[in-house]
């Protein structure tokens, strides 16, 4: 870490980053690129994780916990009937009726999710905490009508669209994110290659003079590589913040307007994803940095040889 800070300090000290407008534009563009890259990486990861969770549950038969907020008029048997008959669960492992405060506290404790994201309009709604087992593969198909039925039982208005968006279209989201990811990746290669060439050409006198002062190639290129690294890290951080803000806004909106909140699937998955998503973004950034470094050395290493020849 100390070495990185030192190199970053050097990169800043050498002022090869901030002096020219072209470099600044490049930094902004690079940060935006990594933002897009990390954003879509997380989208892909989220969609894949949702699908994976369901598939795991189907294969292993492990129970899934749902935290469902239901109409207080429905009694325990009615809810169990809904879960077993309509949703396709083969057994309700346990059902506990909770008041709203307890239910939100459970969610907060389990998922680290703030209770302020559950500003229910209906104060009479109660929470029920279920531990259920998935019966068959048909559940995946039956998920939407199931939740829609529950939504109908509790009179939710936006349930249909939310469920449709978050669950039945997740494959579309996944496909879209994957295509965007590939597009961004391919564009980034072209972008970085062009920029590296421009940088090399623009910095040619600098390279020449630094070589004349005895600087090694790695020392000349380190500031550039670290510029990209800083841009990548900044982009990844910004993307994480932006993405989480979007997700909190979305889930907050859903929680405000929906009567049913399948906690472990919607909130739980998202919250459990955060650490993994952070790691994913960081690893994406690290891979991008490594790629950028390789690209710089591949492109500008040959430039340096030519510059060396320019001494003659």
């Amino acid at each position: 870490m100390g070495g990185e800070v030192f190199f970053i300090y050097k990169a800043i000290a050498l002022k090869s980053a901030a002096r020219s407008m072209a470099r600044r534009k490049f930094l902004v563009a690079a940060a935006f690129f990594f933002y897009v890259l990390a954003f879509f990486s997380e989208c892909v990861f989220l969609a894949a994780k949702l699908e994976g969770e369901k598939i795991d549950a189907l294969i292993s038969g492990k129970p899934i916990e749902l935290c469902v907020f239901v109409d207080p008029d429905l009694d325990e048997y009615a809810i169990q009937a809904l879960l077993v008959d309509i949703m396709g669960f083969d057994g309700v492992m346990g059902a506990t009726y909770l008041d709203k405060g307890t239910a939100t506290a459970i969610i907060e404790r389990r998922y680290g999710y703030s209770a302020r994201h559950f500003p229910y309009k209906e104060p009479a709604l109660l929470g029920a905490h279920f531990s259920v087992r998935i019966a068959s593969a048909e559940l995946a198909v039956a998920f939407k009508p199931t939740l829609s039925s529950l939504a109908g039982a509790t009179g939710a208005t936006l349930q249909e669209s939310a469920v449709d968006y978050l669950y039945h279209n997740y494959k579309k989201i996944q496909d879209m994110a994957f295509k965007c990811f590939i597009t961004a990746f391919v564009c980034s290669i072209a972008f970085q290659a062009a920029k590296a060439r421009d940088t090399a050409l623009r910095s040619r006198p600098d390279f020449k003079s630094q070589k004349a002062l005895g600087a090694s190639s790695s020392k000349i290129l380190a500031p550039i590589v670290y510029e990209w690294g800083i841009a990548a890290m900044a982009g990844a951080s910004v993307s994480l913040l932006a993405f989480r803000s979007c997700m909190y806004s979305l889930t907050g909106f859903l929680a405000t307007n929906l009567a049913i909140l399948p906690g472990s699937v919607l909130e739980g998955s998202h919250i459990q994803l955060v650490r993994a998503a952070c790691l994913l973004c960081l690893s994406t950034a690290a891979v991008s940095i490594a790629f950028a470094a390789m690209l710089v050395f591949a492109l500008e290493g040959s430039r340096i040889k030519k510059i060396s020849n320019a001494f003659h």
């Binding site: 050498l14 002022k15 002096r19 006198p205 600098d206 630094q210 002062l213 005895g214 600087a215 020392k219």
Partner: peptide
């Protein structure tokens, strides 16, 4: 180095 100040140019050999 065009994109550095005079002082930074003189300090560059020390940084290297």
């Amino acid at each position: 180095a065009e994109d550095m100040t005079v002082g930074e140019n003189v300090r560059l050999p020390f940084a290297i």
